[in-house]
Each structure stands twice: as C-alpha cells, then as structure tokens.
Design a protein around this nucleic acid. Structure first.
Length: 738
DNA sequence: CTAGGGTTAG
C-alpha cells in the first residue's frame, strides 16, 4: 500500500486520458472503489483505497479524487494534513476539488488555511470561484472574525453576480454578525427579495449574540407578522435572546409556543430552554424541564450546575457536579467563574487548585480567564504570574479575552509594567484590551497616559464603547483632569455615539465634585435624564466630605439613604465629615442611629500575598499565627514614626472614642497597617509590599505608608477600593489626590 | 457530487 512518503512520480501514470468531449467530472460515478470510501472507519483504510485508486488511475478522475479528499477531511477520523497531501498529488484539480479542500479547512481548527487555499485557487485554477465557494470562505472569515477579508469576499460576490444566491447572502449575514457589524448584517438582510427561514435565523442570531437581544426579539416578532414559520433553530436563538434580556415572561411564552405549534423538540432546543430558565433566575422551571427531558447531555447538566451556582446554592451545585456523567472543563469553569463573579475569589482559586490536583481536564482559556480574575480580586500576583507562565508554556495564543484578563490582573496586583508588557506583546487588540489598558493606567494615577492610549486606540480604528468611557472618565477623576473629563463626557454621545449611562454620570459628578466644582456637580445631577442612583449621590457625598461642605453632604446623604436606607457607606462618609469638622456630637448621634437600625460599617479588611498564599487582616486582628511578631513590629513602627514627628490624624476615626490614646490605638490597628507590618516581617527587603484593601484607605494610613516607605526603604503598593497607591521614598503616586 | 442558521463557562 502507498505510504505517505511514496513519491507520486514513482507510480506509473495510468494510460487513461480524458476525452475532451466528455464531462470528466462524472467519469466513474458508480465505481465500486468509491462505495468502499464510505465504509472506511479509519485513516489506514482510506490510505489503502488511495493506493488502489492510484493503481487503477481512478485517482485522476476529479470526482473520485474529491470524494477521497472529502473522506480524508470531513469524516470522523479526519486528517486534514493527509487530505492536503492527496490534494497536492492531483495534477490539475478542478473547481469542485478546490471547493472540497476550502470547505474542509473552513470548518477546521485552522480556518485561515481555507482562505489561503482560496487565494491559491484564484492563482492556479482556470475556473472562477462559484456559488459553492463563497459560503465556505465566508464561514472561514466568520470564524476568524476577519472583517476586512470578508468584506473583500462580499465585493467579489457582487462582481461575480452572485449577490442573489440565497446561500451566499445568508452566509454574508452570518459573517457580518460574527464580526459584530450588526448594521451591515441587517442591511444585507433587508435587501433580500425572497427571505427564507435561514435568512431570518441568521439575522436573529446575529443580534442575539451581538448583545442586542431586544432587536433580536423584535425581528422574531416581525418574522411572525410576515407569516414565516420559525423552526427549532429560530427558537434556540430567540431563547438565547430572552436569556440575555433576563425576560422570563417572554421566555416562558416562547416555551409554550414551541409546545403548542409543534416546533420539533430536540436536545439542543431543550438545552436552550434550560439555559433561558437559568439565566432568568428560575431554577424551578429548569428543574421541571430537566426532569422530563428524554435525553440529557453534558450541556444539560452543566446548565443546571450553573443555575445553582449563580444562585449561590453551592451545595446543590456541588451535588450536580458530582452526579453528572463526567466533569468536562466547562463544568469546572462554571464553578470557578461563579465563585469569582460572586466575590468569592479564594473559593474560585481553591477549585482551580482542586482541578490541578485531581488531574482533571486540561484548563482552557476560560479557566484561566476566571482564575486570573480571581487573582486580580485578591491581588494574588504570584499565582497570577504563574498562570501567565503556564499560558506561555502550553504555547497557548493570547486571545483578546486572555490578554484583557492578564492586563487586568497585573494592573490590579500593582504591576503596571507587566500589564504594559502584555499589551505590547499582542497583535490583536479589541475594545476590551484597549479599555483594560486604559483602566490600568487610570487606577495607577497615570491619567495623561490613559488619554494618550485612548487616542492611539482611535488611530487603530477601534471603536470605544461604554466601558472605555467609564475608564477614561475614571482616569480623569484620579488624575484631576477636570477640563478633559468634561470634554469627553460631552463628546461621548455626539462624537462616538455612546449614550452616557449611570456610571458615566457618577464619574462626572466625582470629577467635578472632587475638584471642588460642587455647584456644577449638583447642576449635572439636576439635569440628568436618568434618575440618580446611590452611586451618583455617593460621589457627591464623597466630594462634600473632601471639601468640608456639611450642608450639601447632609442633603446628598439623605437622597442616598432615601434610595438605599441600609447603605453603610453613606453613614461612614457623613460621619467622616462630621469628624473632620470636629462635630463629635453628630458623630455619636450617627453611631447611635446606626446601632439602633442595626446597620454595621463594612469591616475594613486588607490582604497580602506572601510566597503564593494570601493572608487577611481585619481591624485589630490577632488571629494570625504570627500575631505577636506583627504587634511588636507595629510598636516599633509607631516608635520610629513618632521619632520623626508623625502625629496620628484622629479625624479618620469612625468610632467616637473618648480617650486620646484609645484613638491612637484604634488607628494603629487599621487592617492595612497590620498587613504592612506583616509584609515587613515576612518578605525580603528587596521585595515590594503589595496590600489590597476592601475599602478606601484612610488619610492616616496613607500618611503612615508614605513615611514607612522612606523609613524602611520599601516600596509599598496599596490597592484600595478605587485605585492604587504606590509609595516610594516618602511619596505616593497619587500625589495625595484621591 | 459540494452550501447557509442553533445550546454550557469569560
């Protein structure tokens, strides 16, 4: 039998010569060898057929050779490399043969080969691409999200006068949808004279998956109004749109419609229904459906697992996890990401460790993205860096999701340089990658650089979205760039078409208020077209605290508490301004109010990662095994600080503490100070200390950190709820503006 | 003889 290495030239050519008057494509349609191809169950059998075909000369019949290639490329035991070798042996492949190979590559893991083969075909084949060629290459372009290449194909389609072929047009809709060019997808759709059900499905899917579920549902209603009968595929996309909108009512209606109108129920459709119920928050509906499903697969189980996990019912989630027929990586990912997204990063990482310990399925991109997000929350840079190394070792290509998470992780763990390094190392940067980098610069106080990156992003023709503008405004806020902030805020809708949302208003109030333009901030709130949320009033309240405007602070606070009576942050901020202005009676009144209504201040908590494990400290915490050492370090710190003239700033106390030395005690026990003391004890003098705090750093801790960085010659990175402080040689990167 | 649309984790 012919091995892969057998040179084709060594095999004598069969004397068969095609007659010019006969269509050589259908020379041997019923040749017995051809039916053998269909019966092959592995690649070796195909190789034997290949050899046989070479001997008989059947191989030089294009129809037969194409059939062989199809089998090589598309069967369950496919080998594209072998298909390519077979192809390369064909002296003059015809259009059909080229199409076969292009088709095979389009649905392979390497769709770019499809496009390269297409180009080769244009160069080498005497025939022009036909109506079969374009759906294949458009599919490849969709997979690759190769927007420009696909547009080029669209142009070729028009020139070749194939613009009316329904298969091609539907492929174009799908292509534009996958590239996120929803307007173009729709334009192609509306111009179709005779839309079929696939046209509708393609356009509905484009909008459902492109974050426009409302439009998808409108299109579905239009479809019904035009008496086009939806099928199971339509319903899968419609359900997916309901899930994205969290529209349980309409979702239920769709399910009942499916039953009433006899849309064929299959596993995929049932899974889509399950997913809709879960995403709309009704695990009960999901359970009922799950129990009566005639067939379940791993997707069904994973969806149920997701349902329990997103409700925080981890016991039930774990039970489903153990009960499912096999735990693939998606199941692990559901656990990891649900912990991460509900603010339980330690639990998320515990599952990640479990996955590795158990030699479970190989982590994929999603695993790493979720785990990196957990590291970012914790400030766990050692583990985060380890994951980065793992990605490199596995030879995984950084896609935009991974790039974004790495940038975010490094930035939130305080290593801006590494974040930049990752950013610079990649070729593809989508809006999320750019936005993450802008956010990274913003949180490190490098507002000017953030704005510079924004203009580079525009140069790279990447369209900013709502998140980008939140980050830009955040950058302006942290760096005190008031005029720039104002300009961006007023340009975002007019120039970039992004309607300001509540976050943008909150940022803008923050920018104005922080810089002392309290009146303008109030005006902005009064003129807002959407009603202000607690975050907007919170920004104003924060600004009042900073600028000592008690009257306005009280007003802002009362609005805030109207909307959210249990907002402890409001009490804390108001208490801070009373303390700052010496109104200790008001402070104690507020304390009583909080006590009476059972509202507790969120306890301050700081964490620090040393040698890969994360240590947490609360105020006055003495639960740590090294507690004794920490407290003696604190004493030493306190002594050295006083010797250089440091006076504790007691206005930063929420509690009304009567005795002066008690105040000092309460201050020195702030969690960030404990964490810094622990860092000084346990890490090498050359290592920076990286602390993450759940609340904002208080002014006293800020001053202390500055002094410590000088006294102990240590860099300290302190991340608080809003931003980063990088202390070095007695200064902070925020220039005391935060 | 070739073609288009769908469900889980970010």
């Amino acid at each position: 039998m012919a091995s892969l290495g057998t040179p084709v030239t060594s095999i004598p050519r069969h004397p068969y010569t095609p007659s010019p008057t006969v269509n050589n494509d259908l020379r041997f349609p019923n040749h017995p060898v051809l039916s053998v191809i269909d019966q092959c169950t592995n690649i070796d059998q195909l190789k034997q057929v290949h050899a046989q075909m070479l001997r008989t000369g059947l191989f030089f019949d294009p129809y037969s050779a194409s059939k062989l290639i199809t089998a090589c490329a598309l069967s369950s035991f496919s080998s594209l490399d072998y298909a390519r070798q077979v192809f390369d042996e064909i002296p003059e492949p015809n259009l059909f043969t080229w199409n076969t190979l292009i088709r095979a590559y389009a649905s392979s893991t390497d769709p770019i080969e499809s496009i390269l083969t297409f180009l080769q075909m244009l160069d080498q084949c005497t025939e022009c691409p036909n109506k079969f060629t374009f759906p294949f290459v458009l599919k490849a372009a969709s997979e690759l999200q190769a927007s420009k290449v696909g547009r080029g194909f669209h142009g070729m389609v028009i020139k070749a006068d194939l613009g009316l072929d329904i298969y091609i047009v539907n492929s174009l809709i799908h292509f534009y949808g996958s590239c996120g060019d929803l307007d173009l997808a729709r334009q192609v759709f509306v111009k179709i004279h005779k839309k079929d059900v696939v046209s509708w499905n393609s356009v509905i899917t484009a909008f459902a998956q492109g974050n426009c579920p409302e439009v998808a549902l409108e299109l579905f209603k239009e479809m019904e109004a035009e008496d086009m009968i939806p099928n199971d595929v339509t319903m899968v996309s419609v359900l997916s749109a309901c899930a994205k909108k969290a529209d349980l009512e309409f979702g239920r209606w769709v399910c009942s419609r499916i039953e009433r109108h006899g849309v064929e129920e299959n596993l995929t459709l049932n899974n889509a229904m399950l997913d809709m119920y879960v995403k709309c928050g009704s695990v009960e509906d999901a359970e009922r459906l799950f129990d009566r499903m005639p067939e379940k697969d791993i997707v069904s189980w994973t969806t149920m697992l997701d349902g329990y996990a997103r409700l925080g019912n981890y016991d039930e989630a774990r039970r489903v996890f153990a009960a499912m027929p096999g735990q693939d990586i998606a199941a692990w990912n559901v656990l990891i990401s649900s912990y991460e997204q509900s603010g339980k990063p330690k639990e998320a990482l515990a599952v990640f460790h479990e996955l590795q310990k158990n030699k479970g399925p190989k982590p994929d991109e999603v695993t790493l993205v979720s785990s990196l997000a957990a590291c970012a929350q914790l400030g766990a840079i050692d583990l985060g860096g380890w994951i980065h190394v793992y990605v490199k070792k596995q030879g995984m290509k950084l896609n935009c999701h991974l790039t974004t998470s790495l940038i975010d992780m490094y930035a939130k763990c305080g290593n801006l340089d590494k974040a930049l390094e990752v950013f610079n190392s990649v070729e593809r940067r989508d809006v999320f990658v750019w936005s993450a980098m802008i956010a990274a610069l913003a949180m490190h106080g490098q507002g000017r650089d953030a704005l510079h990156f924004f203009s580079k992003m525009l140069e790279a023709k990447v369209k900013p979205n709502a998140v980008t503008f939140t980050n830009i405004l955040c950058a302006c806020s942290h760096a005190g760039l008031v005029d720039e902030g104002r300009t961006f805020f007023y340009q975002m809708e007019r120039v970039y078409g992004v309607v300001p949302g509540i976050k943008h208003y909150a940022c803008m109030v923050d920018i104005l208020g922080r810089s002392g333009n309290l009146e303008e901030a109030v005006e902005l709130i009064e003129k807002m077209p959407i009603s202000p949320t607690p975050s907007v009033w919170g920004a104003l309240l924060g600004a009042c605290t900073r600028h000592g405007n008690v009257a306005l602070a009280e007003k802002a606070c009362s609005h805030l508490l109207d909307l959210d009576p249990r907002n402890h942050g409001a009490y804390v901020l108001l208490s801070n301004i009373y303390a700052k202005t010496g109104k200790w009676e008001a402070v104690s009144g507020l304390r009583k109010l909080m006590r009476d209504s059972g509202i507790k201040k969120e306890p301050g908590c700081s964490s620090i990662e040393v040698n890969g494990s994360v240590h947490e400290f609360l105020v006055g915490d003495n639960s740590h095994p090294l507690s004794k050492d920490i407290y003696s370090k604190l004493d030493e710190m306190s002594g050295r600080l006083k010797s250089i003239g440091y006076v504790p700033n007691k206005s930063h106390l929420l509690q009304f503490v009567e005795e002066e030395d008690m105040k000092e005690q309460a201050l020195i026990l702030h969690s960030e100070k404990l964490a810094i003391a622990f860092g000084l004890i346990t890490s090498e003098p050359s290592q920076p200390i990286r602390v993450v705090k759940n609340l904002r750093v208080c002014g006293d801790c800020h001053s202390v950190a500055k002094l410590i960085s000088k006294l102990y010659d240590r860099e300290i990175f302190l991340r608080d709820r809003y931003r980063f402080h990088h202390f070095r040689e007695g200064h902070c990167s925020c220039n005391d503006y935060w």
